[in-house]
Nucleic acid binder design. Structure first.
Lengths: 203, 203
DNA sequence: GTCTATAAGAAGATAGAC
DNA sequence: GTCTATCTTCTTATAGAC
């Protein structure tokens, strides 16, 4: 957790780092413990010293660490917007903020692993994603409620609207990170998102 | 393709069916050729008669068949809507139509496999998803353009709006099918989607 | 903590009989 | 077309020296 790692912990971290990379790139089952040990430069037996339950314990550790890290890094500050352009820009920034989280290699890799190896994980381990997204809906709903420009819409519409906005973000993230294997935020992507935000805010 | 299968083709189909089930449930790598042969009730060697390139050829066949089937079954007819409630109901039906496609076991399984085994597939094989979704955006944009109720919005907003609607659908499908492992369309889900459609159509 | 060596079994694939 | 038998390689995991 902290930077004060003993020399031995460095080996453990190395094994985790290599495993994360290989699981994300080639999949959990396709990655053998030998490949991990070789790439990590550690001996065959050492892995079982740090992870007595073997390969699957490494997977669980990676997924768990991933949850913690992404939640921690997804914190963002909100402040009120007075115009619709203001609000649109704010939401765009929120998206870029989320995207930024996945620029971190570890976060990206553990996310990909969590989706791809869904069948090897518990429901709890997979559920984090939905919970984070629900939290995001809450925060954006708050943001919308606080915006003077949107006072016209009825009280019950804030959450559905927030949900729509999260859907817009989520589609881009899934399409790019999971299908296209793209981690670069291009102008093309932004130019696709912005009109969508614009149209849903024009109510 | 047709129903006039020779007896031998039945064995091939059996192998594909069993493989599809096992790949979807346990993953491609975790499923061994022995498990497939045993469950299919066919001998060790026979698999290589039908699929000379082995296990990976089975995967490719499943993914390819999945694309074809889902595209074919996703055809739907549109006709004009005169009121916003009309339009909202129409879009709801479109969603239920898409959902229905995944009620077909084969379609569901090949979809899950395509996402989970992304790293084993070519970019072309993964790209189908995005192309289908783009096609859906087109169709919904047409639908919106034809709706007398929405004549007020500017010409350039139909596609962004259609994109938003597809995002709403896509989020539900991904969350339920991939994360929650749920294939049942509940009232709760419908009651989450409807207000979102309502709010984006209230422009 | 870290190493080497190896057990014990399972993997994908093939050869060749019928 | 379908089968049995088997080859070769690789897998996870452990035992035990240092």
């Amino acid at each position: 957790m902290s930077k004060s790692e003993t020399k031995s912990d460095q080996h453990k971290e190395k094994i985790l780092k290599i495993s994360r990379e290989m699981f994300a790139k080639n999949g959990y089952e396709a990655t053998t413990t030998r490949m991990i040990n070789q790439a990590a430069g550690t001996a065959e037996g050492l892995m079982y010293y740090y992870f007595p339950h073997g390969k699957h314990e490494i997977l669980n550790t990676i997924v768990h660490q991933g949850i913690i890290n992404r939640v921690n890094q997804l914190q963002m500050t909100f402040n009120d917007c007075v115009t619709k352009t203001d609000l649109e820009q704010r939401l765009m920034l929120i998206f870029e903020n989320i995207w930024q989280v996945f620029q971190d290699k570890e976060n990206y890799q553990s996310f990909v692993i969590t989706i791809h190896e869904r069948m090897l994980l518990s429901d709890d381990q997979a559920d984090w994603l939905l919970q984070i997204l629900e939290g995001l809906v809450d925060e954006i709903a708050q943001q919308l409620k606080a915006a003077p420009v949107l006072q016209s819409i009825s009280k019950g519409q804030y959450r559905p609207l927030a949900r729509v906005i999260v859907s817009i973000f989520q589609k881009v993230i899934y399409d790019e990170l999971l299908i296209k294997n793209n981690r670069q935020l291009t102008d093309e992507m932004k130019n696709l998102i912005r009109p969508q935000l614009s149209v849903v805010l024009s109510i």
